[in-house]
Write a protein that binds this DNA or RNA. Structure first.
Ligand code: MN
Ligand code: MN
Ligand code: ZN
Ligand code: ZN
Lengths: 149, 149
DNA sequence: CTCTTTTTGAAATTGAATTTCAATTTCATT
DNA sequence: AATGAAATTGAAATTCAATTTCAAAAAGAG
């Protein structure tokens, strides 16, 4: 995201454009993955050690409100954030062995969810769907260990 | 569950059969819904005010390990427990208006999840799937309020 | 009953999430 | 550029569920 677009967005919200917000936004939007606040703060602090954890916390909340970040709570309980990509949506496959997270999109799944919800008279706004298991390599390791003993 | 069956189960685990465990089990298994520890403790304390929160906590963890309880973490963050029913599985529809939780089972959904996971080389052990939206009555209330202003 | 082990429950601890508040910064206005 | 109200920052404090600690009580094997 261009600095100007960010300033506009911030200003439209009646907020002020600060160095901290710009830095956090820049680092966060250019990152990938699902990071905890501690991880994001560590990254940000590398660039600018003066930026406090609290500011990172508040800025990520802000970005979530603006639709630029998505807050995720997987089974480990710690809140994680990932940058969003306009109008897209995905769910997650999570490896219980190595922690790898694979993203997937499945229109059939989405429409099936809608159908189920409608069947119960619900109108759905969002959902949470995570599949926990073992990725190829981890499943393989588990199997070979079992054979040996 | 019969008291004898419980004693057997407990004994097989090398654990001791206590009044507290029996009471908590009895109350919990005869309840329905998705209760927080505080709620379960409140119920248990009505029968026997001497039973401590910690014991309820530990007993619910135990029941979860034995497969008699399921631990759920919905969006509000607080851990909830529900009694399980042998070999069944269900997911949840949650109303953002009134908090109502509706359970559903959908074989098509389950097999679709497996198919998606296989497609990414994963072997799934469990999943989490919650649909958040508005139930019939709540959706209706929202609409009529909007019309009025 | 006796002894050893487990369990209990109150209190303490943990750790992430959130709030507080004084100092600092932004920015609209002069 | 200076002013000043309002927003922001960041360290510290607080919150609150989850978990651990530990001394006293209870279970149950022998
Ligand atoms: Mn993702
Ligand atoms: Mn349920
Ligand atoms: Zn793996
Ligand atoms: Zn409702």
């Amino acid at each position: 995201m261009k600095p100007d677009r960010f300033k506009t967005l911030i200003s439209e919200e009646g907020l002020k454009s600060t160095r901290q917000r710009a830095e956090i936004l820049d680092i966060f939007l250019n990152s990938t993955g699902h990071k905890s606040l501690a991880e994001i703060h560590a990254w940000v602090a590398k660039m600018d050690p003066k930026i406090g954890y609290t500011t990172v916390y508040r800025t990520l909340k802000l970005l979530t409100r603006l639709g630029l970040a998505a807050e995720r709570k997987f089974a480990d309980g710690e809140t994680r954030y990932e940058p969003t990509h306009e109008g897209t949506h995905h769910d997650h496959l999570i490896c219980l062995g190595c922690g790898k997270i694979v993203e997937f999109e499945d229109d059939g799944l989405e429409s099936l969810q809608d159908r189920i919800a409608r069947g119960h008279g619900f109108k759905i706004f969002h959902h949470r769907m995570e599949l926990y298991g073992y990725c190829g390599p981890c499943a393989h390791k588990k199997t070979s260990h079992r054979r040996k003993g």
